[in-house]
């Protein structure tokens, strides 16, 4: 007797049962809070008088006009950090995947190792490493790389560097994963067919690793755009990003509706950018078209 086919009704339900926990999680911790945040964004009032629901759409335009600079900075810093992370991560992942040999696991461990310390502590550690009188900053300064200034902290450079550092593993790991499963015989075949090493890279390796690149850039860019920790410790008011504005609105000004509106807009802009990016990069790249690889 085959247990699986004996009860077709039960069999039909299995996919739903498997989806269940994830769906419930999404509903309780994403959909319901989203609904409340959306509703909050349309309220008006103050904490003292209470926030009444009034279809206050002006919260959105108000938030945008007050915090437009923070928005621009967020996407600028996140974009630059993502690009730098990609330029660092790709060669690194390539090296680990194809050239590391028996050091592969050790190197992967090194990439992940910073995660054993919390995000906050790692960022605070940089404030000591990069403090004005530190060896690092004095060395960079004496090489004339600070451009006339005598400090690194509280500059956009420090904030972008901090974001790049903190999210780098999110870029390395997906790229590594997609490079690692490339069938090296395809590259050999390309060379057999008289392509140069560079041609083989551009026409075989790079396209096959595209899913990793797309996943890595998204995993880096999305959290980076909403980050506020790096600005608090490595930046100053002149670098503050949209996450800092939301924090200030929620915790210091207790203007919950504007904060909710700002959070919504951040989400909407990120979503729009991601959709454009995926259309441009091709969704097969993200999903990884298995057929093509075979």
């Amino acid at each position: 007797m085959n247990g699986e086919s004996s009860n077709p009704r039960r069999r039909r339900l299995i996919p739903y049962a498997l989806l269940g926990p994830g769906l419930i999680w999404l509903l309780v911790f994403f959909v319901i809070p989203m609904y409340f945040m959306g509703e909050l964004a349309l309220r008006s009032g103050t904490l003292e008088t209470g926030f009444g629901f009034s279809w206050e759409f002006s919260n959105f335009s108000d938030a945008l006009s007050r915090y437009d600079e923070n928005f621009i900075r967020s996407f600028l810093y996140a974009g630059i950090a993502t690009l730098i992370a990609l330029l660092i991560a790709y060669p690194l992942a390539y090296m680990i995947a194809f050239r590391a040999g028996r050091w592969k696991n050790a190197l992967l461990f090194v990439v992940v190792a910073p995660f054993f310390t919390t995000y906050l502590i790692r960022t605070i550690a940089w404030t000591t490493i990069l403090s004005d009188d530190s060896f690092v900053v004095e060395t960079i300064g004496s090489l004339g790389l600070l451009g006339g200034s005598d400090r690194l902290l509280a500059t956009p450079t420090a904030v972008i560097a901090g974001i790049t550092y903190n999210f780098l593993p999110f870029m390395v790991l997906p790229i590594y994963a997609s490079l690692e499963r490339i069938d090296t015989r395809l590259i050999e075949a390309a060379k057999d067919l008289y392509s140069s090493a560079a041609q083989a890279f551009w026409r075989v390796t790079l396209p096959l690793s595209a899913p990793g690149v797309v996943a890595g850039t998204l995993l880096t860019f999305i959290p980076a755009a909403g980050d506020y920790i790096n600005v608090i410790f490595l930046g100053s008011s002149n670098q503050s990003m949209v996450g800092n504005a939301i924090q200030s609105l929620y915790l210091s000004l207790r203007d919950y509706p504007t904060a909710a509106a700002l959070s919504f807009m951040l989400m909407a802009v990120i979503l729009a950018l991601v959709v454009i990016y995926i259309r441009f990069a091709g969704s097969e790249a993200l999903m990884g078209d298995e057929e093509e690889v075979r």
Binding site: I32, R43, F51
Partner: peptide, 25 residues
């Protein structure tokens, strides 16, 4: 089980909806 869990979720959702006041002394 699935129905029981969905019922629970709905209850949580409704309970949350009940809290209509935000702020106000």
């Amino acid at each position: 089980t699935l129905l029981a869990v969905l019922g629970l979720v709905a209850a949580i959702g409704l309970a949350a909806c009940g809290g209509d006041d935000v702020g106000g002394g």
